[in-house]
Design a protein around this nucleic acid. Structure first.
Lengths: 250, 250
DNA sequence: CCAAAAGTGTTACGATTACACCCATGG
DNA sequence: CCATGGGTGTAATCGTAACACTTTTGG
């Protein structure tokens, strides 16, 4: 590593908290096994983050966010996508947005490194094959993490929960087509509390966030009425309920 | 300027969009002179941003946000505060928060420079004496601006408007003590639309954002009942109404 | 026919907006 | 005593939460 501490010159890295709602059984240290009587066959869902384990010092053995040094002619977003593709073989990032910058002079050992952090979301059906040092971890039960990476994951979780409420950001977590029950479980996993499928349907429909496809799925092994399928109207982030209060006059 | 394009090494700057709600007459290019019959004696209020005019190329004559190169051992927030104090003599920043990072490789000429951008707020009574090349500009009527600085101001305005709705961020715009009419005008100026003082009172009181001081101001020259005075309960940012929808069960 | 899952409808509640009305002061 | 601004109260509206009830399927 080239040491280069000329005044005003710093190293810049990007770090991504890549989140996915996925079957808890596929995560390391999943949270408490919840409600055993569940609809889908895949087991309970859990909000998970992608981490790799450091094989070398500093902080050998702790878990880190994927990312790395920004290329000379590289845009920040593209750098994140490149590093996710190269280092952990993840190419299905449906949404990527900036979180904050971490710039404390000694946040990591060695030359001063400023980190731009990102939230990335991977939709449910995708299950990329990961390198051996890489794994999904339940956000509710994080391992010992390197440097300031734990805070970044917390930021990501908070941002996701907030945007689930006032944007269509769940498009980046859900499959193309889904039943309201499936979508409900995704919301429950991401938010960490129970959401009612009926009301979720009404809220998202009135805002135009989801659209019925007209397709009907087959009912599961245990019977039950076959569910109607929906899709997200847009595949890019859209704010749907901007103001919590003090709305502009109509 | 030291050219230093060693791989991975970049220059880092901070840029601040410093906003204040202030008498429109003190701003360059204030918006349309609104409603002439107004309460206060200072004239209509306007949301303004602090800019300095470039005396040299590149982009000579255009207006820039205050900021500059990050110091070697300097935290980002402190760097912003230092540069505001040194370069434009502003020390009354009541609130400072990160906006996004701009990292396109050629966003400015010369060596690659990544900019961390910030929103700063200055409360109303403060009126720092500015250097001659520096002035407040109405956000509704920005001059020709350098590089990507106009976008940054737009981000700042959007962020402020959003947070006025679900946080106590107005503490950083208002004086220590104020009547509801005064606060109403601040909200109107910052949001760009009419807000009702009665309802503003109720919303902010119920949330505990403002507290009555018990003091009563004197009525103005044109008579009228003397207004009760209030203050913000907290002098730091607090989220008061987190979820727009999909609230967690009680 | 019964259990399970999905969908529909109704009610209740909370928060905000809009607006009419009363209060206090200066001229 | 009247114009001006400040404060209080109430009704209307909107959106969501909660929950009971109906529909459709598999065993």
């Amino acid at each position: 590593m080239i040491e280069n501490m000329v005044h005003g010159s710093t190293t810049h890295e990007v770090l991504a908290a890549v989140l996915q709602v996925r079957p808890a059984s596929d995560c390391i240290n999943a949270g408490q096994p919840d409600d055993p009587r569940r609809s889908s066959d895949t087991g309970p869902l859990e909000l998970a983050v992608l981490l790799w384990q450091r094989a070398l010092d500093p902080q050998k053995g702790t878990w880190s966010l994927p990312g790395g040094r920004l290329g000379d002619e590289e845009d920040l977003d593209l750098s994140v996508r490149r590093q996710l593709a190269e280092k952990v073989d993840v190419r299905d990032v449906a949404h990527l947005e900036q979180l904050s910058v971490f710039g404390e002079p000694h946040r990591v050992p060695g030359p001063r490194t400023i980190a731009s952090t990102f939230l990335g979301l991977v939709p449910l059906p995708a299950d990329p094959t990961l390198p051996p040092d890489t794994a999904w971890h339940a956000v509710s039960n994080l391992p010992e993490m390197a440097f300031d990476h734990r805070i970044i994951v917390e930021h990501a979780r908070t941002r996701l929960a907030a945007k689930l409420s006032y944007t269509n950001i769940a498009f980046a977590l859900a499959p193309d087509e889904f039943s309201m029950s499936e979508l409900r479980e995704i919301y429950c996993a991401a938010l960490g509390y129970q959401v009612d499928a009926t009301n979720l349907q009404r809220v998202l429909s009135r805002r135009g966030v989801i659209t019925a496809t007209g397709h009907i799925a087959r009912s599961g092994r245990s019977g039950g009425r076959p569910p109607a399928l929906y899709r997200f109207t847009d595949q890019a982030l859209r704010v749907t309920d901007e103001f919590a209060a003090l709305k502009p006059p109509t």
